[in-house]
């Protein structure tokens, strides 16, 4: 694994500068059934294809961003700092 990632701040950098945080998931609201909770905490789609995932530029600017990566080829199609979803409690 030696692909390059484009940090939205710092530009193209080797992947070992980053921390990987896994797929972008959907958090259930503060009240969740056990199934919803288990889905969210433990289950991942693990697609063979383009995946949206969290990355953190640990040895660089320390920014969290989202990358769209093809898990079959490690081609990173796009990186972006997502707009915050806001602080309102999801219902």
């Amino acid at each position: 694994m030696s692909f390059l990632l484009t940090c939205p701040h710092c530009g193209s950098r080797p992947v070992d500068e980053f921390r990987y945080q896994g797929e972008v998931t959907r958090r259930p609201g503060p009240v969740a059934t056990l199934r919803e909770l288990t889905d969210y905490v433990y289950f991942r789609d693990n697609v063979a294809g383009v995946q949206r995932e969290w990355w953190y530029h640990r040895t660089g600017c320390k920014t969290w961003f989202v990358a769209e990566r093809d898990t079959r080829t490690n081609e990173v199609l796009r990186t972006l700092i997502p707009a915050p979803t806001g602080v309102a409690t999801p219902q």
Binding site: Y56, K62, W64, F65, P82, A83, P84, T85
Partner: peptide
């Protein structure tokens, strides 16, 4: 710190 920053990247405080 990374954990705090990650959540705040989502919430945007």
């Amino acid at each position: 710190v990374e954990w705090f920053e990650w959540w705040n990247a989502i919430w945007g405080y």
